[in-house]
Each structure stands twice: as structure tokens, then as C-alpha cells.
């Protein structure tokens, strides 16, 4: 799936022409938005990342407008996950990691001294590439784990569980066994459980790192529908190796590349522009499957 051949490229283009207008609100999809620097959404300014001495990511400036979906694409190892982890301060858990630049959330630098990283992560949720349900909790408890962990009181836990599981497309499969352990689900089901888990906290931003890499086409479609639906009320950043997926769900696309040195941003634009007439030839090569 990483390297779509020419046939799938046709699919991509037909998708672009038909679907986004159906799924997305056209008014918020405007190339100018990417430039718009304001008090809204999430924005990075000249962000760099290091792992000890290894310079992994260089000079990324991007704006994620409020209530949109942005796809991060690029070959393996170009720093997409690293960039994503910088956006909700997960990068700092890696020993010897360092960074430079600014990450602005609603106009405030999330790396400023007085910012509480814990509160911040509650508002900028994350779903990891590898499903990681809590083994000591059952399915229902997993969904409301975020509420429990941050001591948020909720009177209608059952409603929250049903709502989140439904939105993650898992409710029908697990509604009869909410009491069985999270680890007893299949890999794809576990991933949807993790998505449901992050939804329970009602984050303002949701970061997804290849959320569908372990899912079958059916669940993938359901998760994609969920993403589009969620983007009505939250900003979504999704890393994906699946070009069709990027085309289907995202309003904007950002193409990352590492050309021997650190990974960096090559081009960011409306998804339609990235797929139909990218400005950079490397972007064109990548989305058409000529390398990467």
C-alpha cells in the first residue's frame, strides 16, 4: 500500500474529485488557511528535533487550522512520528531528546515555562501506531481510562462508553463483552478501542500515528468515517502511508522527506493540490509511487 501503482493513482484522483466535497465542508478548506497564523488551531514555527546528537527533523513550520484534517505523508524514517510526538510533548520522554522552535496551540507556546504538560496532553490526544490497551482493565474500563486517570467525574460512564465505542466503530462487536480484558480483542479491534479511549477525553486536537496500519479495509473505512465526523469538532493530524487514505480523509497534506540529512517539510497544501498538481517534483514522484 505504501507505493501505489499507476492504477491506484487513478483511484486516488477519482477519489479526490468525488469524495472530499461530499465529506468535507468546503468553506474551511482553503489554501490560505495554511498560511493563516492566528490564535486558532495548532501551529509550529521552525521546529527541529534531535535524538541525542542525531538531528532527526529540521525547520518544520506548519499550521493546522481548527477543525480540519491534515495528513502527514512521506517515506519511512523521515520524521513524521517524531514531528507528531513534538505536538503533544511526548518527545521529551525519550532520554537525551532535544528540540528547538515553537509549537503554538491556540496562540500559546506549549513548551513555555508555565505550561503544564499534563493538562496539555489531555487537550491534544494521541493514538499510537501499535495498539496499546491497558492489560489490567476490561474493555469498558479502557474506554473511560482517561477520565479515571485524570480524575474527571462522569455520572453516565455507560453512555460515554457506548458513545465512544460507536464513534470508533467498535460498539457492535464488543457490546456483549465489555467486561472482558482489552487484550482479548484482535489487533484491529484493539486499535479502535484505543481510538475510543482517546475520544472519551474530548480532546481539541487528535494526533493519529498510522492508526489504520493494523486494520482490515472495513474497519479502516469506519475509522476514516469517524475521523471525518470528528473533524467537525476537533483538529486532526494523521500520519499515513496509505495515499488513498490521505486523499480520502484529509483536507490538507504535508509531505516530509529526509534526503540524507534530517527530515523536513517539502510541501504543504490542499490535499487536492498535493495529489493533482504538486509544486515540488519530489512530491509528485512520491504520491505517484515513483519512490518511497
Amino acid at each position: 500500500m505504501d507505493t501505489p501503482n499507476l492504477e491506484t493513482k487513478e483511484v486516488i484522483n477519482s477519489n479526490i474529485q468525488m469524495e472530499p466535497t461530499v465529506m468535507n465542508d468546503t468553506t474551511r478548506r482553503n489554501a490560505d488557511n495554511l498560511e493563516a497564523k492566528g490564535e486558532s488551531g495548532l501551529e509550529t514555527r521552525g521546529v527541529h528535533a534531535w535524538f541525542d546528537k542525531h538531528h532527526a527533523l529540521a525547520d518544520v513550520s506548519l499550521h493546522f487550522p481548527e477543525n480540519t484534517v491534515t495528513g502527514l505523508i512521506g517515506p519511512s524514517g523521515c520524521g513524521k512520528s517524531t514531528f507528531l510526538r513534538l505536538l503533544n510533548r511526548m518527545h521529551e520522554f525519550i532520554p537525551k531528546a532535544a528540540m528547538a522552535g515553537q509549537v503554538l496551540f491556540e496562540g500559546n507556546d506549549i513548551y513555555a515555562d508555565d505550561v503544564n504538560a499534563i493538562d496539555m496532553r489531555r487537550r491534544i490526544g494521541m493514538v499510537f501506531q501499535k495498539p496499546n490497551p491497558f492489560p489490567a482493565m476490561n474493555i469498558g474500563e479502557n474506554v473511560v481510562a482517561g477520565l479515571k486517570l485524570s480524575k474527571i467525574k462522569s455520572d453516565n460512564k455507560d453512555e460515554v462508553i457506548e458513545d465512544c465505542l460507536t464513534r470508533a466503530g467498535l460498539w457492535n462487536e464488543v457490546k456483549d463483552r465489555l467486561k472482558s480484558p482489552g487484550g482479548s480483542l484482535s489487533g484491529g479491534q484493539q486499535q479502535r478501542l484505543c481510538i475510543a479511549r482517546s475520544l472519551a477525553l474530548k480532546p481539541d486536537v487528535l494526533l493519529l500515528d498510522e492508526p489504520c496500519s493494523a486494520l482490515d479495509p472495513g474497519s479502516t473505512l469506519r475509522v476514516e468515517e469517524t475521523i471525518v465526523q470528528l473533524s467537525e469538532s476537533m483538529t486532526i493530524v494523521i500520519v499515513t502511508h496509505n495515499m488513498q487514505q490521505a486523499a480520502r480523509v484529509s483536507d490538507y497534506c504535508a509531505f516530509f522527506l529526509s534526503d540524507g540529512g534530517p527530515g523536513h517539510l517539502v510541501e504543504a497544501d490542499l490535499t487536492t493540490s498535493i495529489f493533482s498538481n504538486p509544486k515540488d517534483t519530489r512530491t509528485a514522484d512520491y504520491v505517484q509511487g515513483r519512490f518511497g
Partner: peptide, 11 residues
């Protein structure tokens, strides 16, 4: 690009 000095604002 000009490379800024690595920082650890969380530290």
C-alpha cells in the same frame, strides 16, 4: 536553514 541550538524546555 540555519540550525538553532538544541534545547530541552521540559528540563
Amino acid at each position: 536553514v540555519e540550525v538553532p541550538t538544541p534545547k530541552r524546555p521540559w528540563n
